[in-house]
Simulated scan of single mutants.
Amino acid sequence: MTLTVNDPIRLGGLSLKNRLIMAPLQQYMGTPEAYAVNHHIEHYGRRAKHVGLVILESTAVSSNGRLWKNDIGIYTDRHVEPLRKITDAVHAHQTPVFIQLSHGGRKSSPEVTDSLVAPSAIAFDDHYGTPKALSLEGIAHIIEEYRLAAKRSVEAGFDGIEIHAAHGFLIHQFLSPLSNTRLDAYGGAAENRARFLKEVLFAIREEVGRDYPVIVRVSATDYCEGGLTPEAWARMLKPLEPELDGIHVSTGGLLPIQPNDVYTAYQLPHAAAIKQHFNIPVIAVGKIYTRTLANRILEDQLADCIAIGRPLLEDPDYAERLLILEERVCYAG
C-alpha cells in the first residue's frame, strides 16, 4: 500500500488524522507578561482544521528563559487560562495540539532577562552577552520549572509536549560540546552532556505519566566541525527512546552560522539519518512544500511526518490544498 501524507499515524497513544503537522513558529504577539492574546487564538484556530497536529510556538518555562520580549510563557498559573483558549480553538476542529516548552539559556532575550545563564560562560554573540554558568542548584531549579510547565500544559488542555532541544537554546547548549565545557556530571562525555535533557524529560514524565505524548525537537547539525551530528544525536537519544514518542528534526542555531544553501527539503537528509536508529516517528521539516515531495519522503521511509511552517503562516488554507488537491501545490517562499 502506498503511504501518503493523508494517512493517519500514532504519536504514542495519540492518533493523528494525517501526517501533516503545523510547525511551531513565533508570532511575536505576547504581552509584556508573556500572556497569549486573541491573535494566538485566531491564528491557531484558523489553521487547525486540516492538519493532523498543531505544535504551538516556543513557550517559555521561566521568566528568565523567554526567547524574545514578546513571546509567550507558561511559568505561572496565570498563563494557563489564555493558553486554554488556544487549545479550545484548535480542538474545535477535532485536531490535537502540542505545546513546545523552551528555555533560551544564553539566547534568552536581553530585554526581559534578569539573569542570563547557560551550561558554560560562553557567549553566543555580543548582542546577548556572556552568560553565567549554571550551578547545580540552578540546574535543579530549571528542571523543576519544566516539571511545573508540564503540569500547567495538561491543565491548559494540551494533548502533548514538544521539548525544545534545538536552535541553540538551553537544552541544545548542554548537548553540544561547542557550548558545554563543564567538568562535572553535566559535561564532558556525551552521556553527561545529555544528562540535562534526560532529567528534564524524566521530570516531565513524573508529572504527565507515560501515556501522555512527549516528543523532542533537535538540531541535527551545528554546521561547525566538532559540533553535533545526526550520529551523535542518535547515541544520546537512543537511551531515552522508551520515554519519547517522536523526534522532530531541524538544524542549526547553536552558533551565528547559517547553512551554505537552503534548498528544497535541505534538512531531510538529517532526519533520514536519525530515523534509521529509532522505532518512534521522525518528523521532517524545512521547505517541504508540495504534496508530491511529501508523499515521496513518506513512501521512501525517510521520515514519518511532515511539518510545514511558513506557508501556513502566510496562507491559513495551505494545508487544505496540499492534502486535498491532487495537482502540485506550489509555494514561492
Rank of each mutant, 00 (worst) to 15 (best):
G45L: 03
N38V: 15
N38D: 13
G13S: 14
Y28Q: 07
A60E: 00
Q26M: 14
E57Q: 14
L53C: 02
P24A: 00
N18R: 00
A36L: 10
I55E: 10
N18A: 05
T59P: 09
L25K: 05
G45W: 03
K17H: 10
L11A: 01
G65A: 05
R19K: 14
A23G: 15
L16N: 05
Y35R: 08
A48N: 04
G13M: 11
S62K: 01
K17R: 14
W68C: 01
G30T: 04
Y35E: 15
G45Y: 01
K49Q: 15
G45T: 05
N70L: 05
I9F: 00
V51C: 00
L16P: 09
E42P: 03
R66K: 15
P8L: 04
A48L: 02
S15E: 14
N38A: 11
L56I: 14
R46M: 13
E42H: 06
S58I: 09
W68L: 12
L56P: 05
H43I: 08
H50Q: 15
R19I: 12
Y35I: 09
S15M: 11
V54T: 07
R46F: 08
R46T: 13
K17L: 12
L67E: 04
N38I: 06
Q27R: 14
G13N: 15
N18W: 03
P32D: 10
Q26A: 15
T59H: 02
L25R: 04
M29A: 15
V54S: 02
N18P: 11
H50D: 15
V54P: 09
L16R: 00
P32N: 04
D7S: 03
S15A: 11
N18D: 13
L53A: 00
D7Y: 01
N38R: 12
Q26I: 12
S58P: 09
H43T: 02
S58C: 09
G65V: 01
A60R: 03
M22W: 04
L56R: 01
G30I: 08
S63W: 03
L20P: 08
E42W: 08
G12M: 09
R47T: 07
L56N: 11
G65P: 09
A36K: 06
V61P: 05
G45C: 09
D7G: 00
L11V: 15
L20G: 05
Q26S: 13
